[in-house]
């Protein structure tokens, strides 16, 4: 089971405020003007209403699905199929050095 995440369930039962959308947009690094924020607020609230509707269904005794398709995972033979394509992959990287991808310094 996925652990109970109260902050999500709380959101299902209420419609979003403009401030909520602004916060989410900031977290997603999306620049949105007021018109877009309002449009997103209405659409996202609609999605939450839909989820609230699904939450209302009694699922007692029904095993949760982990995937939409009732199939099982196909397994791959343990054989090397990939070749070294470092040059190709790194040609689109913003910065590389000595074969390493460079990213802004990570401080642990």
């Amino acid at each position: 089971m996925i652990p109970y995440q109260p902050h999500l369930y709380k959101a299902f039962t209420m419609s979003l405020s403009t401030a909520d959308v602004q916060k989410v947009a900031r977290l997603a690094r999306l620049a949105m003007n007021n018109t877009e924020i309002e449009a997103a607020r209405v659409q996202l609230s609609g999605i939450f209403e839909l989820i609230a509707e699904m939450q209302a269904v009694d699922t007692t005794g029904i095993a949760p699905m982990s995937h939409a398709q009732d199939l099982s995972q196909r397994l791959r033979e343990d054989i090397v199929t990939e070749t070294n394509q470092r040059e190709l992959f790194q040609s689109i990287a913003p910065q590389v050095e000595s074969g390493l991808y460079l990213v802004p310094q990570v401080i642990e």
Partner: peptide
């Protein structure tokens, strides 16, 4: 693996 200190202000990544 992250490699620190190769270039000032950057972290190198070996995947």
């Amino acid at each position: 693996k992250s490699v620190h200190g190769a270039t000032q202000g950057m972290t190198g990544v070996d995947l």
